[in-house]
Structures are given as structure tokens and as C-alpha cells.
Design a protein around this nucleic acid. Sequence first.
RNA 1: CGGAGCGUAGCGCAGCCUGGUAGCGCAUCUGCUUUGGGAGCAGAGUGUCGGGGGUUCAAAUCCCCCCGCUCCGACCA
Length: 569
Amino acid sequence: MIRWSQTLLNTLREAPQDAEIVSHMLMIRAGMMRKLGGGLYTYLPLGMRALRKIEAIVREEMERAGAQETLFPILQPAELWKQTGRWETMGPGMFRVQDRKEAWYVLAPTAEEAFTALAKSEISSYRQLPRTIFQMQDKFRDEIRPRFGLIRGKEFIMKDAYSFDADDAGADKSYRAMYDAYVRIFARVGLAAKPVEADTGDIGGNFSHEFMVFAASGEDGILDCPACGYAANQERAERAPAPVPYQTEAGAAETVATPGQHTCEEVACFLGRPIDQIVKSLVLLVGGKPVMALVPGDRELSETKLRRLFGGAKVEEAAPETVAQVAGPVGSIGPVGVSIPVYADRSLQGAADVVVGANREGAHLLHVCLARDAKVAAYEDLATVRAGDLCPKCGKPLEIRRGTEVGQCFKLGTKYSAAMGASFLDEQGASKPLVMGCYGIGVSRTLQAIVEQSNDENGIIWPAAVAPCQVALLILDPDVPEVVAKAEALGAALEARGIDVFVDDRAERPGVKFKDADLIGLPIRVVAGAKGLAKGGFEIRRRTERDSAIVAPEQAAQAISDLLATTQK
RNA sequence: CGGAGCGUAGCGCAGCCUGGUAGCGCAUCUGCUUUGGGAGCAGAGUGUCGGGGGUUCAAAUCCCCCCGCUCCGACCA
């Protein structure tokens, strides 16, 4: 039994000034956590209890899926990270520190290197495969912009698991086991998380799913097919091919003056043509070399897709000077006559009457036929998919939703094992690199995502499985001995049934206790007051209900137990 | 890293333009009254005004530098 009078817990009437989203505001107001610095949060006793419950569920499901828990150092030698090149590629995203001998270390932002190093030293035979190991550990990332409380912090708690297999088929099985465990974990913590196809980002590898929680405040766009269930991160979502417009040639290309018109919208408007007839030309540096990308004027280029096309090379926007050098002034460039490689979105294949920049200030070209007038190296999927585009799986229109990522699975292949020489001997005695997968859950982020998804105007509504306690017991008359005695007896009876009880035993007015109970949001509220007891017993209700039931003291423990069993999640 | 804003009591903020006694609400403490949805009255405590430098008889206020935080953008699990 936890007593408020003995707990470090203060609720706030006013929202903190820096809380942008409801879950952040509620976590602070309800006294679950406090900010120590930008992107750095302290878990207070109540928040800590919820966190521990999530961790316990994650552990259980990991072990059920055959994974074994370990614990790696957070502080890791730079050499480890240099072996895979991530000392450079993750670069400023990592916290790096030096010891007194000026040797460099990394505060681990993830742990592929360390786990691979362990596998290298411990696994030498196919007889030891497969293995999946995990840890629940603080991670550090020097986020450019920490925000939304626990959603994006500089320090956070992550469960990271790594699988090691002898071959691809085995790796697929390990991946599937983790994927299934993730589905169970998010269901158990009361979170509606949907697996979506995702990009592999800095982690690398060739295949990935993100587990996304839909929320208006989400930082990612997700294309979702209500018809067949296809879902993918906007960075990499595909669409079914649509008929390519403007396939009929309309004569030779012709220069037209477009003074001061730079964006596709301006040019379309100025020329009185539909915007999708304008072709957007962009110069990017791919692995340091300039490349031109073409997408329809009403579309955005997906830099992620371009990066995938080039095997994960770094893609960045070219500086205006570079653009001017290889094509023309920004806002007036086009593919005609340029000598850098040109890649066009698939939807432009066959386009025979479009408008492009003339590579001269204030001029565009009409009636351009890409096949005739430009040298296009390849037509690839480069444009960002948007709502209304057709599902690549079933052809029905896609919807777009916002989401927050709470977990991600990656098929890594041999990226890390090959780089670090983590190999084993197969049945024939041949040395092969381990085939790996890695699997992360943002545990602290999950905590806040639950609150983001489950609240009302009065406060948090904790799912029973992760609530700091299952029952809030409000003693309205702490100076009436009979009320206190009955409440204490009920608390003890509940504890005996394994139900966590949080007792509000403060000398506060009833209204304050009701407000705070709603704010903190435990699943069941039990009121012990002189008035209620005079009417026959305790007043019991779910956090989500308006009306209470009066239950006689001797039946109360059973009634609460029953109510909990039927409370959703 | 580019743009913008903010930094004054534990929290939320006013005061700054036009230099001169540091204030309000919430919270905290004391007393009385109250007591079923964030009580009322009376009283009390609480500040390196983010830091440093400058101007001035005098700086929270004006000027310069630095630091921190937040938002938008770019970027990113």
C-alpha cells in the first residue's frame, strides 16, 4: 500500500510552460516525472512504478520469445565504433567523452557493435545458433532538438535485442519471433501500435518494420491502407503505378520567359498550366557527387528513397552555388543539357509534354519530351507518397496519419558481423559471417505514448497492466477513525489479493482528492467517506465511468477484483 | 546549423518601452471558519531579476559578450 502522505508526489494545477503535447503535460502535472534539463527527465515514484510494469512485460515477452537478458556498459570504447564506420557516420548524433588519458569513448546510442563483439568472442560454431540476446539499458543520443518530454530525449530507456543466425532463413525466423513478441508487448501494455514498413536509417540492413502509435502529435507520417492493412512510413511508402499524363508530344521544346517565377506553383500559375505538368528538378549531393532528381511539380522528393537507390549513401541538398555550377540558378533549373546524372520518378516515364527550367534565370522550356530532350539515367520510385495515392498492394486509396515510433525491427544481414569479423564455422567447416537482426523498443517513450493515447480532459487513464497502482483509495475523512479503519482493512484485503493500492490519506478537502485522482488516472477509484459508508459502503467506479456503485465493506475487495478483471487492458 | 522568442520566488507570469521602494496568481507555513468535484478570511516566509562586463549618482530596466531553455525550419530511432 502506498500512502500519499508518505510519497514524494506533487500534482500541479497549471501546465508547465514547455509542455507541447498532452502526454508531456499530464506526466508533469500528475507528478510522474520532472525535467532536469533539456531532453532529460527524472522519473518520480509513481512514474517509476508504471515504467517498471512496462519493463516487466517487455522482459517476460522477450524471454518467452527465447531471448536472454544481458547488460552491456553504456560507456563504450571509440575503437568499437570505428570498426563499423559509425564513429563517422553517426558522428555528432553520439555523445563522446574522453578519459584522463584522453582516450575517446561513446555513450552508447544503440549497441550493435558491442553485441556483435560479444558474439564474435563467444559464438564460433553453427551448433551455438541461433541466439537472441537483449538488454534494457539507458541510451544516449545528442538529439538536434529534444522535445515532447520522453518522446524525444537525450537520454532514454531502450530495450535492445540482437539475433544471430547461421543463414537468412534462420534470421527470418528470429525476426518473426521478435516481431510477434512486439505485437504481444504493445497489446499487453494497452497500446494500439501498428507495424509499418520502414526505412533502415543509420542502423542499416535491408528490411525493417516500425511499430507506430497513431497520434496527432506524431513526428512521422504513415501511409495506411484501410482496405488491406498495408502501412508504411512516408519516407519509404510506395504507390501503385498511375497512368502517366502528358504522353503526347506537342512539338519541339520551346523557351518561354518566366520572369521572377521560381517555385513550381508560381510557374504553373504564370503559364496557366496544371501543376503536375511542371517537372520539379532538384540537385542533391549523393555521397558528395551532384545528381539531379526529377519529380512531378506537385510532389516532394523522398531523400530516403534516393538514398536507398544509392545503397545508403549520404544524401544532402546541394548548395545554391553548386546548383548554379552544374545546372543553373536555383528555381530555374531543368534536366535538358546538364551533364550530371539525372534520375526521374517513375511517374515521369513517358512524359512527352512537360515544363522544365531552362537553366537560365527567368526562363522555362515548354513541350519538353524527357526521352527526346534529356538524358535520364533511370526512372525510379523517388517521389513521396501522399494521401489519396493508390495502395501498392491492393490499389485502393491510401490515407495518411501521424504516428510515433515505439519500436523497430531490423534485418541487418551481415553488415556488422562482416565489418567486425564475427563469423562461425558451418557444418562443412566453412567460416561464415553471422546473420543478424536487431530489435528496439523505446521503453520510456512507450510510457509516455500510453498516456498520449489514453487520457481525457481530467487527466491520465492508465491501462490496468501498467498503471502505477490498480486502485486509488480516497479516504475523504481521515480524522474519522471508523472511516480510516474500514479503509485500512479494505487496503489490506486488496493487497492480500495482489492488487496495488494507492491511498490518498492527506488532510485535503474531498474536491481536491477527486481532482487529483482523475489526474493521476488509476483504473479503479474507491471512495471511503463517512457519507458513503452511511449509505451502505464504499463507492467504487472505474476511472472511465461517471457513476459509482456502493458496495458493502465486506464485499468490496471481491467487487474491486471483479471490476479489475473486466476493465479493458 | 539557419530563423524567432524567452530567462524575474518552488510553478505560471507582470514589471523593462520611458532607469530610482521587486510585484501578482498558484503552491508553502501559522491561525480561525469551512469540508462529497481544485474553499474563505487574516497573517507569514520566500529572490545571486540566467552569468559577466559596460554606461550612469543610480540598472530587472539601456549597451556589449556569454550561457541556458523553448518554438519554427533543416536533420533525425
